[in-house]
Design a protein around this nucleic acid. Sequence first.
DNA 1: CACATGTGCAA
DNA 2: TATTGCACATGTG
Length: 953
Amino acid sequence: MSDQKRLFLVDAYALIFRGYYAFIKNPRINSKGEDTSAIMGFMNSLLDVIKRERPDHLAVCFDKGGSADRVEMFEAYKANRDETPEGIKTAVPYIYEILKAMHIPIMVKEGYEADDVIGTLAKKAEKEGYQTFMVTPDKDFAQLVSENIFMYRPMFGGGYETWGIPEVQKKFEVTDPLQVIDFLGMMGDASDNIPGLPGVGEKTAKKFLAAYGSMENLLANTHELKGKMKEKVEANSELGMLSKKLATIMLDVPVNFNEKDFEMSEPDIPKVTEIFQELEFRRLIDNFNKTFSAETVAPKVETTQSTEAKVSDKTETKTTPKEVKSAGAGQFSLFGGEDNSAEATPSNTRKTAENTSHFYQSIASGMATKLFVKNLMNQTSVCFDTETTGLNSLTAELVGISFSWETGKGFYVPFPEDKNEAQKLIETFRPFFENENIQKIGQNLKYDIKVLAKYNIEVKGKLFDTMLAHYLINPDMRHNMDVLAETYLNYTPISIVDLIGKKGKNQLSMREVPLEKQTEYAVEDADITLQLKEHFEKELGEANTQKLFDDIEIPLLRVLATMELEGINLDKGFLNSLSEQLNTDIEALVKNIYEAAGEEFNIASPKQLGIILFEKLKLVDKPKKTKTGQYKTGEDILSYLAKDHEIIQNILDYRGLAKLKSTYVDALPLQVEESTGRVHTDYMQTVAATGRLSSNNPNLQNIPIRTERGRQVRKAFIPRNEDYTLLAADYSQIELRIIAALSKEETMIEAFKNGEDIHASTASKVFGVPISEVTREQRSNAKTVNFGIIYGVSAFGLSNQTDLSRGEAKELIDTYYETYPKLRAYMSEQVDFARDHGYVQTVLGRRRYLKDINSRNAIVRGAAERNAVNAPIQGSAADIIKIAMINIHNKMKAGDYKSKMLLQVHDELVFDVYKPELEELSSLIKTEMEGAFKMEVPLDVEIDTGLNWLEAH
DNA sequence: CACATGTGCAA
DNA sequence: TATTGCACATGTG
């Protein structure tokens, strides 16, 4: 390394924003409800740089008041940037405080952007003989790169890349970094509000640069261009020059580079620790101490096993796996001294397979397998993960299975392509999978269970699914393994994309991946899942979440796997003829609409439709626009206009039929699984934040029912054969019953106990008429309010949903609360509870955290308050039907019924019932559903049967 | 081919 | 300015 002095200039806001958005899906919230993502993100980056590079000179640069010059040049400059998120605003003062405590100089110059400050300082430092590193992900800085000035770019997923002249040349396809200015000027930069040349994107900009070298030269030679592009560029030459100016980083900021001011000095460790403690940054305190402890001079690699690490400046760290002990009495020593250690990449402190020591071994020979299974059978708890040829568990073939029962160690069993051979191999593992006494751990076990079921292997014994565990710990977050590993283990697993490529053209099948890579990837997954399990196990115990996990979600996983494997029979022929009828009707409507419009256009394009309706036909004086400036053409908007213009009703009809055809009638037959002839939806158990299931591929929870035409689709869902019949069992008004019971609102409870029609009953009370005299309209409005209450509706919302005016809507809501006073009290109790505890919960203690409940932003807070009311209700209903499903499944299994549970639609279960079992099963289902959870309000279930799903209602 | 947007279906 | 979802067609790069 040269003796040249090195200066690091950190672009604070860029790193703060980046840190904030890196956590956007899983924001860090401390116990005070503050979003500390931005601070955490920034500090991670800063410490990372310090630890990695040990700079002798460093400063952090902020903006203040924006760039007066640029705003003068271009009014819109940064004008329509979204407002700075609250989580960032609150972060900045903390970051200032921390930097002060760390004795790191802060550079700010009123009226200048950090870009300009950094640029000016970098150039000045260069004159003093420094090497300067600009720490920022912002590509604008590439224009400043020189022999002594570099960009130091944090990369997603950890690590850094350094951009010198060659990198910039390659990246932007320029000869001189200064041309980056021309490049940005041409293509523009949405995030910086640089307009750029219209119609010029990255590709065109590069082409222009290659041909003309600069914006000026391009504009001087536009005669060489052709067609539209020529017109556009010529018409916008001024905009082009302006864009170039905006993209130029200014180098004349009045700041001085006094070396002394930028020297790194010892931080005030106690002070920094105190701030971190306040922010609840436990891991960061460790990280900080490590970074500044005396002996750490070089990048240090954490390992999961004992290491013989030689740490010295700029050398790699080697780790040696421990000799593997054979477990139990068996002589299980297949694993020789193969060196699995990997070089530590100095460019990454986040642990990855590259820099973590582990022992992963593949097991190939028959003898080895037998010994391995024997060893497996000695364990009490094993994590496993199946690797398959695809994501469809019904057709996926096993490529391998990984196992781990000890952190940092695991095994991979590759499977042969030949089906008979594969079946033979899996038979070896049957004793393991079907052993009741060995706990099976996995991430999304439903998938593995389904895959193995296709090999006729049943996974028995206690289960622990890390995905489900995390769903209960915080349902609002994401639960895929990569995110969990990064969040809880600070570990970045090998990405599947690295392994098999992006989907599309050249994506590999897992089988085509070299065995060593398969092993690394697969065993790593099992290893990580095992570590996550140890982590989550403790967290689950804290709340009554443990019961929810053991008694609801885990048993439900098996129920869902069974239902999904079962699928439902679909009458393809019926849908095909329906499709033809729709086609005829749609064609007629299209013809009609074109005539009325006076031209042909794409009716399905909201953009084109908007222009026809509101520009050509001028149907409305002031049409409403969407946030992107297009005309709104939603059903609610068009319905208002229907009475005035014939074309509107035709458009609405077209929309309805086109939707029906494309989403259901034509799409469903394509979803029939070839191997079974049935439709197999996939229930997502960890998606809905309230505890509901969701359904996809296809979504069988949104099959039409409200319109006559749409309802027909349900006729296509039929029993498996003539010995069976479809049975649908619906909870009647379960959410209203729950809110009545939870609020202890006697009036409503009584109505339910008396078996009254709740909407009519509400109408009767609210409008002050006997229940027999309630009009259809009154009942309908009462129904809307009843539902609206569950969602936290406003007078505005209610008036939009009904024919009522704002005033009438408000009056109706007021009267409603007077009729059911305890309902209102209950709702505000929920909000208060959320404010105090940061979460709300269902009848079974399922939690939903509401970080925005104390937000200063009324809109954000309002949304959180509605969630506080809605989540316990929707979630409790979800809890209850889950209980019913598990109990019904178990009884049907125990009773060895031929009938099958097929579908769940939030408050409804659909069964394929073997006719001789009908009576017995109807009563079993009703009993179990109504008895799933006892409240002061009785649950009521309506059951019906028929030749198809429509008849069963 | 990937992604955002607008729209609309269900409970 | 009503909750939770999923999927389609269009339009853009």
